[in-house]
Nucleic acid binder design. Structure first.
Length: 339
DNA sequence: TTGTGTTTTATTGCCTCC
DNA sequence: GGAGGCAATAAAACACAA
């Protein structure tokens, strides 16, 4: 046998000769009442030089070839079933005697006994192993194997439990994240809506307050500013052109039609302010916004919405004079137009 | 009855500890 | 180097549907 481990499967010792009280005698005693097996013991099983005192009666499961019919109440399985002797008689019995041992299951009572012992301590010290073997009428090796397999089963179940716990935890976290994400989206939409509203309001107020300066602007740039990001870009471009044009030909401003209902200096200045560097969405902010998006995509636990450098922005309360509300505009199309 | 999947018992080889 | 634990695996025993 490789590894030098040799197990004596055919040992004739087995059983153990009574003597001494088991450390688990209380278990044995407690089971006597419910163990129907002990009442059905085959007398021949007890006919050894030193019969075991255990209720399992020194079964010698791997060594005894007695067919001890210990019908269990639950399944009527014999205590051990090495083979059926009643069919072929002594011939097969002799034959069986020279064959390697067949596996046989432990009885329900033996298993219960071992289970209780396992609950007390899942490791097996040598003394305990020998005592258990004596009590159960098994080979110490069998007890050791049973504990080993039992530990393996316990470990498997523990892993399943741990997996369930982790899965529940994950599900809970995911639900939280989903809720936060929805809330973030909702707030984001609300912020954009309010931003647009404020821009329109500000433009309207400037239209009514500021004097008319440039009457020569083309009427098409007076289209609604807050329609979309694209239209905003067009307006800004146009107003920049207008600004340059104003610089060049400011002397001609007197010939502009001051009665144009669609174009007032209010709008113009508002648009200019819109395109002013103090208002325009700066690359730094856009980068921050981009970073935020990146980090959002990478880190699911970021706050739903972040307002970078809020204290540094010209946030007026209420924001009547500036369109910079401290909100990073996340819609890149909104600020990515070029001059 | 039989095929098939699951459970239980046991073996093997490797590893660690004393 | 021996004893014992563990993972992987074999194989018998068992359960159960068809």
């Amino acid at each position: 046998m490789a590894g030098g481990r040799m197990y004596n499967q055919n040992s004739s010792s087995g059983g153990g000769s009574g003597g001494g009280t088991s450390s688990l005698s209380f278990l044995i005693q407690s089971q006597k009442g419910s163990c129907s097996n002990s009442q059905n013991l085959d007398a021949s099983f007890l006919s050894g030089p030193s019969p075991s005192p255990s209720p399992f009666l020194g079964s010698r499961s791997m060594v005894s070839f007695e067919d001890v019919h210990l019908a269990n109440g639950s399944n009527n399985r014999p205590f051990f079933r090495p083979f059926d002797r009643d069919e072929n008689g002594d011939e097969d019995f002799d034959e069986y005697f020279h064959q390697p041992e067949k596996k046989r299951r432990l009885t329900v009572d033996q298993v219960q006994f071992l289970e209780k012992s396992f609950e007390v301590e899942n490791k097996l010290e040598p003394e305990r192993k020998i005592q258990l073997a004596k009590d159960l009428g098994l080979q110490p090796r069998q007890v050791a194997i049973w504990f080993q397999n039992r530990r393996a089963r316990w470990k498997t179940k523990q892993l399943e439990k741990d997996y369930d716990v982790l899965q529940n935890s994950y599900n809970s976290l995911k639900a939280d994240y989903d809720n936060l994400f929805k809330e973030k989206e909702k707030l984001k939409a609300e912020v954009l809506k309010l931003t647009d509203k404020l821009q329109v309001k500000e433009k309207e107020s400037k239209n009514t307050e500021l004097p008319v300066v440039n009457k020569q602007e083309p009427p098409q740039i007076s289209e609604p500013v807050a329609d979309s990001a694209a239209s905003e870009g067009k307006v800004c471009k146009a107003s920049v052109v207008a600004c340059k044009q104003e610089d060049i030909s400011s002397a001609k401003s007197d010939i502009f039609d001051s009665d144009s209902p669609h174009y007032t200096d209010g709008v113009h200045s508002s648009l200019l302010e819109t395109c002013d560097s103090s208002y325009v969405f700066e690359p730094e902010q856009s980068d921050l916004s981009q970073d935020e998006d990146d980090s959002l995509s990478k880190n699911v636990l970021l706050p739903p919405y972040v307002f970078p450098k809020l204290e540094e922005t010209e946030y007026s309360d209420p924001p009547t004079n500036s369109c910079n509300f401290g909100f990073p505009i996340e819609d890149h199309a909104f600020w990515s137009w070029s001059f």
